[in-house]
Amino acid sequence: MNENTPEDENELVVTRDGSHTVYSSQFDQHYHNPNGAVAESRYVFFQQPGLLDALKGNDEITILEIGFGTGLNLMLLLDYYLSAESTSQINYYSIEGFPLKAETAKSLNYHKHLENPQVGKKILNIFGNLDKGMNRFSPLDNITAHLFNGMFSDFPDTPIGAEYIFHDAFSPDTNPDLWTGQVFKKIREISKDEVILSTYCAASKVQGAMAWAGWNIAKTQGALGKREMILGALNPSKLEGLKRVNEERYARRYEEGDFN
């Protein structure tokens, strides 16, 4: 997602765990880690923030994803939900500025990596049928997906009570608009106090932007050859036992423009 650039040609690529990713010539970057698209998403967005345990608790859950991309994270959520026999009520919000073309999406092989392969088709079939703005659909009885086809800057700033944030945009070097302090401030303001944010990225400029926006930050082991990744929370107790960063120092450096 980028604030100004139209969709360009995309190419399917097989990653090392056998699952597809997409190479975007628009951003000169893969949508996922070439070492394993499915493996990375499982680790970063489900295992590290504790979402798998939350699904077993059968509580109401609200998720916000920055960068719908191939729809992989939503497919994994549905797959985990069915496998856990969860009864949670889930609201899944996602934002995508440039949805994949339907023919590209329908060629993705994620169904081969799911315990419940039918959920893959449910998600891939929505590409090509998206209106501008908010699209709502229910892939499972207790799950409502709210897919915003547009830019993050146009996403409503009304609080949605997000408890889990999947920050899954293209990298800050390629797509800096989605990694600013103002972006993380808006995410904070529409989330619950007990929210936890996970992202594959651990760049210093991202830590600075998050700290400036009022997030507590911890670094943990990255996925598939990446040294580190970030977890963020508004309540510092959510990061107990993890390697914390000096948020005050990062926020000051961000304010002073050290990361520009």
Rank of each mutant, 00 (worst) to 15 (best):
71 G>T: 04
51 L>N: 01
155 F>W: 08
34 P>E: 14
83 S>K: 13
75 M>L: 03
21 T>C: 01
184 F>V: 04
161 G>A: 09
33 N>Q: 06
95 I>E: 04
167 H>Y: 11
84 A>K: 13
96 E>W: 02
210 M>H: 04
101 K>T: 12
100 L>Y: 09
191 S>I: 09
174 T>V: 15
11 E>K: 10
77 L>I: 05
239 L>Q: 10
260 N>K: 02
144 T>W: 00
148 F>V: 10
185 K>C: 03
113 H>C: 03
224 L>A: 09
166 F>L: 05
45 F>E: 05
146 H>L: 07
255 E>G: 02
48 Q>V: 11
1 M>N: 08
53 D>M: 08
67 G>C: 07
245 V>E: 04
132 K>C: 02
91 N>Q: 14
237 S>E: 14
134 M>N: 12
65 E>T: 09
89 Q>E: 13
27 F>H: 09
25 S>N: 14
44 V>Q: 06
145 A>K: 13
29 Q>K: 12
205 K>L: 15
245 V>Y: 12
151 M>A: 15
226 K>P: 03
192 K>I: 00
216 N>W: 13
168 D>S: 04
72 L>W: 00
218 A>Q: 08
255 E>H: 08
129 N>E: 03
96 E>S: 04
22 V>R: 12
205 K>G: 15
181 G>F: 06
8 D>N: 05
198 S>Q: 04
67 G>L: 05
96 E>L: 02
207 Q>A: 14
172 P>Y: 08
29 Q>V: 06
227 R>D: 15
155 F>D: 05
17 D>Y: 00
49 P>V: 12
237 S>V: 09
69 G>K: 09
66 I>R: 00
57 G>D: 15
79 D>V: 10
57 G>F: 00
114 L>V: 01
19 S>P: 01
124 L>E: 12
40 E>G: 08
163 E>L: 03
135 N>G: 07
106 K>Y: 05
207 Q>D: 13
188 R>P: 06
27 F>K: 00
23 Y>K: 03
259 F>L: 06
20 H>Y: 00
10 N>M: 10
43 Y>N: 08
166 F>T: 11
235 N>D: 14
208 G>Q: 03
241 G>E: 03
79 D>P: 01
111 H>N: 10
152 F>M: 05
101 K>L: 08
151 M>K: 15
95 I>A: 06
131 D>A: 15
215 W>C: 02
21 T>L: 00
131 D>F: 03
14 V>F: 00
118 Q>F: 15
182 Q>W: 11
102 A>P: 12
4 N>D: 09
141 D>C: 07
157 D>V: 14
12 L>C: 12
73 N>F: 09
223 A>N: 07
178 L>Q: 03
249 R>N: 15
244 R>T: 15
6 P>K: 00
202 A>C: 11
102 A>L: 02
83 S>L: 15
163 E>N: 12
121 K>T: 14
116 N>E: 11
211 A>D: 03
106 K>N: 12
90 I>E: 10
235 N>C: 07
194 E>D: 14
55 L>N: 03
199 T>A: 06
11 E>D: 11
228 E>Y: 09
110 Y>V: 00
165 I>N: 10
